[in-house]
Nucleic acid binder design. Structure first.
Length: 505
DNA sequence: CGTCAAGCTCTTAGGAGCTTGACGGTGCTCTAAT
């Protein structure tokens, strides 16, 4: 059977999108592939289609539970029964059962964390995985160093599975991020399929304001006049709630907030409402967006600058996926830098915490269970979980933690310095990235040109409405009230047709 | 940086007005034996 036939019969498409065929053919030829494909659309096909040519299961490493569940549901809706997501949603019995019969699945989704368990790896080994996929592979670089360090172990996982064909997929990546991906996956000979990050239909605008009051006024004016739907990104949870109230008080009706502190059921509901056009505006933290595939988002407003240009590009890239014009607006005030810096610093343990943990460990002579040490640091002392994970990664690297056992006697004097140096290096990296963000904000040249240079790409968009430096006609993005009002009720049949067409999105 | 709560001072008894310090975001997993 040819790949076109499978595309038609299994997925119902007549032709491939840009890049898909090349990637699939490369994988089927037995090559490792590193692929950067802009926008979320059509990436999953790159591993889902080859699965039908393989006798062995495909393992997909996915960063979010919601993303895994989405994909599983989609595949099931497509008639594929042999799909499983290995995560904490499974009850113990279900998990055991699944692990016993892993080889029977065509698609196995898993988080990087669950892949740290020896028994999971054993089960995967006997399932004989044929394709190892890292979805949203930029997470290796963006989260792996300090937030979710298990991402850095994926190379070991791949190796312990006997190095099956590997596919690393992402939407945006600088060369530095690509290098990180290759390094931590231990991928030496991957074929690269890189497509431009540039999205010519997204205009970019940066506006300077004097303070928060002015920011809110500008925000309100934009939300009032711009075409819906839109996303507003903020750097704090409280602010997403505050802005939602503010917008509602000022006549914007369908607004909701979304952040990581909410119940997951509530988050799911709001995301669903947004996808189904029941909300005009969503005020959110960076928690919102990954895996949200909505085609008709018309604006993205940043109430604060994100910590790096990679995040900025990902976030504004959630608009205009239908190819129609959309606009990205960044509201900036000098004070924003301080908040950004303190958020960066929060990510890593201070020298004091490193010193405290290591000296506490050293008071013990005997080996201890990891669980006990972990409980002590997290619950008795109250060290932040991410900080502990950072320390744990280095303790593992130095051989102080092996498996589930901690050997305090192996804590060397020099380890403190080593870890503190690692913290410093990470911080410097983060400062450097925020500096690039500031350069983007303060530049006097074309913003698109600067972005493309940052991503080490050639070429430039000559489109009108490129960025505020080149000139934007804001009127092009305004609500078209007149058009809406002119459309009058004709008959039920045509009303229904319009409704159904909206439903297709 | 902006916000908010706690604590202090002043002046005169409960409240106003000030300073100080903390905080701010992203997610996975819990198989541990008694």
């Amino acid at each position: 059977m040819k790949i076109e036939q499978v595309l038609q019969t299994k997925f119902g498409f007549n032709h491939f999108r840009e890049g898909q065929r090349e990637i699939i053919e490369d994988l089927l030829a037995g090559n490792h592939v590193l692929a950067v494909l802009p926008t979320g659309t059509g990436k999953s096909l790159c591993y889902q289609l080859p699965a039908y040519f393989m006798k062995r299961p495909v393992l997909i490493v996915s960063p979010l539970l919601s993303l895994m569940e989405d994909q599983v549901q989609q595949l099931k809706a497509n008639g594929e029964k042999n799909v499983i997501a290995l995560n904490s949603f499974l009850r113990e019995e279900e998990k055991k059962e699944a692990l016993r019969h892993l080889a029977a699945y065509r698609f196995i989704y898993a988080s990087p964390e669950i892949l740290q368990n020896a028994y999971v790896i054993q089960a995967l080994q006997s399932a004989n995985v044929g394709l190892f996929v890292v979805d949203e592979a930029h997470c290796i670089s963006q989260w792996g160093h300090d937030f979710r360090l298990d991402y850095l172990h994926l190379g070991d996982v791949w190796q312990s599975l006997g190095k099956p064909i590997c596919l690393a997929l992402t939407g945006t990546a600088t060369n530095e991020v690509l290098e990180d991906i290759k390094h931590y996956l231990q991928l030496k000979d991957a074929h690269e399929h890189l497509y431009s990050m540039n999205r010519p239909n997204i205009a970019m605008n940066v506006e300077y304001v004097e303070g928060v009051k002015e920011k809110k006024e500008k925000l309100l004016a934009y939300v009032k006049h711009l075409q819906n739907p839109g996303i507003i990104y903020c750097s704090s949870r409280a602010l997403t709630e505050e802005l939602t109230v503010y917008l509602k008080e000022n006549g914007i009706e369908n607004v909701q907030y979304y952040h990581g502190g909410m119940e997951s059921s509530e988050r799911m509901l709001i995301q669903q409402q947004f996808l189904e056009n029941q909300l005009d505006v969503i005020c959110c933290t960076s928690a919102f967006g990954m895996g949200v595939n909505k085609r008709n988002v018309r604006f993205v407003i940043h109430f604060q600058p994100p910590p790096q240009l990679e995040s900025y590009v990902q976030e504004i890239g959630r608009s205009g996926r239908d190819g129609e014009d959309s606009i990205a607006i960044l509201l900036y005030h000098e004070g924003d830098d301080e908040l950004a810096y303190s958020l960066l610093e929060m990510e890593l343990p201070s020298s004091d915490i490193v010193f405290y943990c290591l000296s506490t460990l050293r008071t013990n002579k005997q080996a201890m269970s990891l669980k006990k040490v972990e409980d002590h640091f997290l619950f008795t002392i109250g060290i932040q979980e991410t900080h502990w994970r950072f320390l744990r990664y280095y303790l593992q690297k130095e051989g102080v933690i092996v498996g589930d056992t901690v050997y305090p006697s192996l804590v060397q004097e020099s380890l403190h310095e080593k870890i503190v140096d690692a913290v410093k290096e990470r911080l410097q990296n983060k400062y450097r990235k925020y500096t690039a963000m500031k350069q983007f904000i303060h530049t006097h040249e074309c913003r698109r040109q600067l972005l493309m240079r940052y991503f080490e790409e050639e070429g430039l968009s000559e489109k009108i409405n490129c960025c505020d430096q080149c000139g934007i006609s804001l009127d092009d993005y305004k609500k078209r009230e007149n058009l809406k009002k002119k459309r009058i009720f004709k008959d039920w049949e045509s009303e229904l047709r319009i409704l159904l067409r909206q439903g297709e999105e």
